[in-house]
Nucleic acid binder design. Structure first.
Ligand SMILES: NC(=O)c1ccc[n+]([C@@H]2O[C@H](COP(=O)([O-])OP(=O)(O)OC[C@H]3O[C@@H](n4cnc5c(N)ncnc54)[C@H](O)[C@@H]3O)[C@@H](O)[C@H]2O)c1
Ligand SMILES: NC(=O)c1ccc[n+]([C@@H]2O[C@H](COP(=O)([O-])OP(=O)(O)OC[C@H]3O[C@@H](n4cnc5c(N)ncnc54)[C@H](O)[C@@H]3O)[C@@H](O)[C@H]2O)c1
Lengths: 215, 215
DNA sequence: TTTAACTTGTGAATGAATTCACAAGCCGCT
DNA sequence: AGCGGCTTGTGAATTCATTCACAAGTTAAA
């Protein structure tokens, strides 16, 4: 019954974390509509899963529901925010102020969820010094110095694939522990650094496979 | 020796397909450097997996290697392209010519892999009629008519979350069977339609969780 | 206070994915 | 032709994830 986020006694699967994220999104929707309680069954229907799955996912972290009633929407939302570490602001830097970097820098969805973008970095003199909406584009040469001073939590990589590993090495060398990579390449980092790669070409290939292999 | 991709006797896991995509990328790299054979071990090292995993993944589709030697790089690359359905051109439409839609429309990585973007659609009169690089932005009102004529294989959704389900319904109604969704919302579609969602906020929350729950 | 209708939380059962481990095959050398 | 070094392909074993199924708790109503 302790309130510090997550007892984390066993390793939590990635798929579980993604579902928790999804549940939180639905809860926020319900919160907005003023509903006070929700059952695992309703949550499951929204998320395309089963009620047993919902309850099992939550049970890794405690027991938040009331038998016969369901879950308190605001309480469960709060618990999920705690578990996911969303009770605080996370600071982000974007490396690569190109097309996709600019789209991310200008995206409001991140700030709304507590992710604050400090700056974007580029090596193109024409881009350095400009702003993307209100995010400054800084010289990549300042990267390490700035990171040591501002201590961002997450680096988002939107540089060409050939440059990506060297940027990983640079940000890791000054203490960044989490990286979101958009370059279509496999990155290597120490075990205490979490790297997630979003590879859109791979997603399209998944669709190509699905379209090709249907009986 | 049939050349139609995949015997597909059992359902292939999503994770397997993603790895096949990754293997293909490494093989193309090796091909470029003129190497002729590669072992499962080398492929595994590059992809951050194990050699047994590589061999098991490939074994679902046939046996392409030579014991004692490894795999022929060009042959295996060809087989993977066949399996993934990359032997042909896939036609894509983008719905939502906003920031992320524009970035995707202008991205060269897709065309290089056989994904050809026909057009982007928007409901904003200021955007309609313009071009994103060489991709035309068309009126969303033409969506169904154009799809029936041009028969795109894949629809990419980059509209606001509230609009996403209605766009799904529209493209599904005229026969689209594969959707790549960037809106942060759960979509519902008939079982014969494959929907993949790329949810960047969810990826960031995964990083937030990892940073928060480390012992 | 009793009952009926619900819903949670969780072990146990099932199902899926990964890893192990080794026989079988290939190559080059002597 | 035989041997040693390597590497595949694959059942069997293991590990991990999901689903089942039900006791236990809650509410509301009579
Ligand atoms: N545009 C897309 O829709 C899209 C989709 C999927 C993946 N990606 C990937 O995202 C990455 C960026 O793509 P993009 O389309 O934005 O390309 P882009 O060329 O528009 O942007 C890349 C930016 O990185 C900068 N850059 C290059 N080397 C750098 C370095 N060493 N340090 C700092 N900045 C550097 C460039 O000046 C440029 O501004 C690529 O790896 C690409 O494969 C892009
Ligand atoms: N920009 C990002 O980096 C980013 C990141 C993650 C997710 N997303 C998601 O991608 C989607 C688009 O984001 P964006 O930043 O490009 O927003 P945006 O506002 O720049 O683009 C949305 C575009 O869709 C058009 N549109 C709206 N309703 C439409 C309809 N019914 N039919 C056709 N077109 C319509 C708008 O005119 C606009 O051009 C959103 O769902 C957003 O949550 C964006």
């Amino acid at each position: 019954m302790n309130s510090q986020a997550a007892v984390s006694v066993k390793r939590i699967a990635d798929s579980t974390v993604r579902r928790l994220s999804a549940y939180l999104r639905f809860l926020e929707d319900f919160e907005g509509r003023g509903l006070m309680t929700i059952s695992s069954e309703e949550l499951a229907k929204r998320g395309g899963t089963t009620s047993a799955q919902v309850r099992k996912d939550l049970s890794f972290f405690g027991s938040f529901g009331k038998r016969g009633l369901g879950y308190s929407v605001p309480e469960l939302a709060g618990r999920l925010r705690e578990i996911l570490g969303l009770g605080r602001e996370w600071k982000i830097v974007i490396v690569g102020a190109g097309k996709i970097g600019a789209a991310l820098a200008q995206y409001r969805g991140f700030r709304q969820r507590g992710f604050s973008i400090l700056a974007a970095y580029d090596n193109n003199p024409e881009k350095i010094g400009r702003k993307l909406e209100d995010i400054p584009v800084r010289d990549i040469d300042q990267l390490e110095r700035d990171i040591e001073r501002e201590k961002p939590d997450i680096a988002v990589l939107t540089v060409p694939a050939e440059e990506a590993q060297s940027v990983v090495n640079r940000v890791v060398s000054v203490g960044v522990k989490a990286i979101l990579n958009f370059a279509p390449t496999q990155l290597h980092a120490p075990a205490d650094v979490t790297v997630k790669t979003v590879n859109m070409a791979m997603e399209l290939e998944g669709l190509s496979f699905a379209l090709t292999n249907r009986e």
